Simulated assay, not measured.
Amino acid sequence: MPLYQKISVDSNSVILIWKIAESFNNLFRAVVLKDNSLARLEGMKSESHQKGFLAVRMLLQEAGYTDFDLYYDEFGKPHLKDNKNISISHSYDFSVVMLSDKNIGIDLELRRDLIKKIARKFAAEAFVYECENNSAEFISKLTVVWGIKEAVFKVRNEVGISFKDHIFTKPFEINHSKTTALLDFIDTKQEFMVHFAEIENYTLVWLWEMNS
């Protein structure tokens, strides 16, 4: 299918969302891949991951780029050759790309009951306790927090960062659709402006460094 949604964050930042309805073959025929991307694609065991990978390349084409404009550094962080900042996420039926002049991170997660079982591994006890006492928003809030921590890590993917011990979120309400986050790691204290939205059964989180 064509582009599912475009979110204009500001004059220099945009989010592109692709809902994956095509077959693998249709997606594969629609993009051109460099050799190392083709090798990476062939090494993926899951067709879902393969289709998500190809859908990201469809989004690049929507934005005027190709796979040849995209490269990854030694930490696995994506970059564009023209120095535009890019962040990428994929979850089951959707792939998303954010482009900006700011230092950005984006994450997309399917909302699932499973997150309740692992909540104490990434969220503060007080936050989990609060969510448990508001069951209607329990999964939604925890999914936002997980997405925030994933997105922050995509911005500052340094060895040793703990989701629970080093990335913190300011209390928020789901209907406010925004909050702030803090990375406090060794000699780094970086604040992030956070926005989030629900798209079908998924939670989308995007953020940027507040001094970028």
Rank of each mutant, 00 (worst) to 15 (best):
28 F>M: 13
211 N>F: 09
5 Q>G: 01
190 Q>H: 03
79 H>W: 04
99 L>P: 13
141 K>R: 15
39 A>S: 12
81 K>I: 10
201 N>Q: 14
45 K>E: 04
94 F>V: 13
190 Q>N: 09
128 V>N: 06
55 A>N: 07
97 V>P: 05
205 V>G: 10
171 P>C: 03
117 K>L: 08
110 L>G: 01
11 S>N: 15
104 I>T: 12
1 M>Q: 04
97 V>A: 09
36 N>F: 05
33 L>Q: 11
26 N>V: 13
85 N>K: 10
50 Q>A: 12
188 T>P: 03
97 V>C: 06
134 N>S: 10
114 L>C: 09
8 S>G: 03
113 D>F: 06
2 P>E: 00
50 Q>F: 02
203 T>E: 05
182 L>C: 11
156 R>Q: 07
166 H>L: 02
208 W>E: 14
97 V>Y: 00
107 D>S: 02
208 W>Q: 15
170 K>I: 12
73 D>E: 00
138 F>E: 15
107 D>N: 11
162 S>M: 05
117 K>V: 01
112 R>W: 00
155 V>I: 13
185 F>H: 14
115 I>Y: 04
16 L>R: 09
135 S>V: 11
142 L>I: 02
173 E>V: 00
31 V>P: 14
111 R>H: 04
73 D>Q: 06
25 N>H: 10
167 I>D: 06
126 A>M: 09
109 E>V: 05
180 T>F: 00
77 K>V: 06
36 N>W: 07
171 P>S: 03
102 K>A: 09
100 S>G: 03
92 Y>W: 04
122 F>V: 13
196 F>D: 07
9 V>S: 06
186 I>T: 12
43 G>D: 08
148 I>G: 05
176 H>C: 09
184 D>F: 00
116 K>L: 13
88 I>Y: 00
141 K>Y: 03
141 K>D: 05
164 K>N: 08
151 A>H: 02
131 C>G: 06
34 K>W: 01
122 F>C: 13
104 I>H: 05
179 T>E: 03
138 F>H: 14
152 V>K: 01
116 K>E: 11
30 A>W: 04
42 E>A: 13
111 R>W: 00
90 H>N: 11
188 T>W: 02
54 L>D: 00
109 E>M: 07
167 I>A: 07
16 L>N: 12
122 F>Q: 13
55 A>C: 11
127 F>P: 03
91 S>W: 01
79 H>R: 06
173 E>Q: 12
152 V>G: 06
197 A>I: 09
59 L>S: 06
152 V>F: 02
3 L>Y: 05
198 E>H: 12
122 F>I: 15
155 V>Y: 01
11 S>C: 07
209 E>Q: 15
135 S>C: 03
188 T>M: 14
63 A>W: 01
139 I>Y: 08
11 S>K: 15
85 N>T: 12
57 R>G: 04
46 S>T: 08
197 A>Y: 02
34 K>I: 15
73 D>H: 04
27 L>S: 07
185 F>R: 15
130 E>M: 10
93 D>V: 02
58 M>E: 05
183 L>M: 07
206 W>E: 05
191 E>N: 14
179 T>F: 02
104 I>C: 07
14 V>N: 14
125 E>I: 08
105 G>C: 07
